[in-house]
Design a protein around this nucleic acid. Structure first.
Lengths: 242, 242
DNA sequence: CGCGATTTTGATCAATGTCAAAGGTGGTGG
DNA sequence: CCACCACCTTTGACATTGATCAAAATCGCG
């Protein structure tokens, strides 16, 4: 498959490139790579030599604390760009693990720099992408720091809901599928899986949710959004940064 | 004062520029600006037209939730670059407020894009800077999500300690000055100021801290770092990104 | 059918929040 | 120089959220 046919190009660092310019990306292609669920893409503490665009599947980024507790810092969907860090040669601060089978487009880190040099718009685009992820990180921080368990869960579910709707064309109904366990939610929200479970039950009883993570519905998105002050609007404009 | 004499140039987007190239930055200079403590630099919900390099003083970035609770998402020291966001024309997601009198170097957002176009290395640098801030955000998220009150406080104090030591040449002793109240700590850590107070007392009793935020000492940095698994190493290499 | 991974539930506990009030401290105007 | 005031810090009593420990109940799957 060629970059020209890439389904997520509009969301990636490649977005500013014209069709004709895509060959620079192809020239660094390592070959797209498929990994099974529950495999690590890169690991905390290790030095990786590649960055990745997610072509398909879900990935989570997490940090392991010294006592073994886990904090999931981001869920990544198709179109996400992972592995970029301030010092490319430093060991990674977190682990990227596939939540589903994934398809990745790996790019050698040296290729990345070369691409930036030849197509500066890509560097600007990169900055915008990282800035967007940072906004998400700040929102998560505010959620974990200042919301109640119910608020955090509502917030995260809504966020994933709109992201899934945007990324895939799965734009139908109030029902989506999340490849997550309650423990994943807990580790992303700074809670216990037990407490997540109880809180989900209450939310079901209150009629705002239905079903389970595998295939659940947000019965009352508006009410949920209202009770949690959810802000869906985090995007990168077409013309990079302007 | 000229960019050539800038004390924080090595940490900013300008770092990749040679002395001779600095005039492009100067050409967009709005004039350096001084603000008093407790004034807003830009505000959540409003569209700003500038980004800023902090030349001197402390700034905090915070989000206000719908119920009025505050989450501080970052403390910014001289050399920091604030106001950049994925969509430059979108309203800001957070407020930047001066904690001390500050001196800023404002840059019109359009100037930023123009600079990126003419000096692509600056865009790469920008991406690295944002990526570094993102790593901090992830670390804070892990701290707030998974550490005990004492761990969070220890972690933040250590982080600020090394940042202060690095940024200013105030490299002496175990004592630093923080222009923060206990409420600031609380709002950054997802705690209550009352609880921060109690926890600080215990830490003083345990002999790891001394003094107050205005001028406090870390009596036992190693013990503190050990008990909280603190990781000081978040940096951007000289040659941008490689 | 049987097994490992989730989900669910109960009982209990610890950490942190809430409410309220009493000291401190520095700055300002008289 | 003092009195007063706004803002912090400190402390107490008590409430609550969410954690912990432990065990069933389910579910997906080979």
């Amino acid at each position: 498959l060629t970059c020209a046919a890439c389904g997520v190009r509009g969301q990636t660092v490649c977005a500013p490139l014209g069709i004709a310019e895509l060959d620079i990306v192809e020239s660094f292609r390592v070959g797209s790579r498929k990994l099974g669920a529950h495999t690590d893409i890169f690991s905390q503490g290790e030095v990786g030599s590649e960055v990745y665009t997610i072509l398909g599947g879900w990935v989570m980024l997490y940090t392991l604390l010294e006592d073994g507790r886990r904090q999931i810092v981001d869920f990544c969907l198709p179109g996400a760009f992972i592995g970029f860090q301030p010092d490319l040669d430093a060991p990674s601060k977190h682990t990227a693990e596939a939540l589903t089978p994934v398809e990745l487009y790996p790019l050698p880190k040296r290729g990345l720099l070369s691409m930036f040099a030849q197509h500066p718009e890509m560097a600007v685009r990169m900055a915008c992408i990282v800035a967007r992820d940072q906004v998400f990180a700040y929102q998560h921080l505010a959620s974990v720091g200042r919301r109640t368990a119910r608020g955090r869960i509502a917030n995260l579910l809504l966020e994933l809901f709109v992201r899934v709707r945007q990324s895939s064309l799965e734009a139908s109904g109030d029902s989506i599928h999340l490849p997550l366990t309650q423990e994943h939610l807990a580790d992303a929200l700074g809670l216990t899986s037990v407490h997540v479970n109880r809180t989900l039950r209450v939310m079901r009883e209150d009629g705002v949710l239905a079903g389970n993570l595998g295939a659940f519905s947000i019965l009352n998105p508006d009410r949920l959004a209202e009770e949690t002050g959810f802000d869906a609007d985090v995007s990168i404009p077409r013309g990079p940064a302007g």
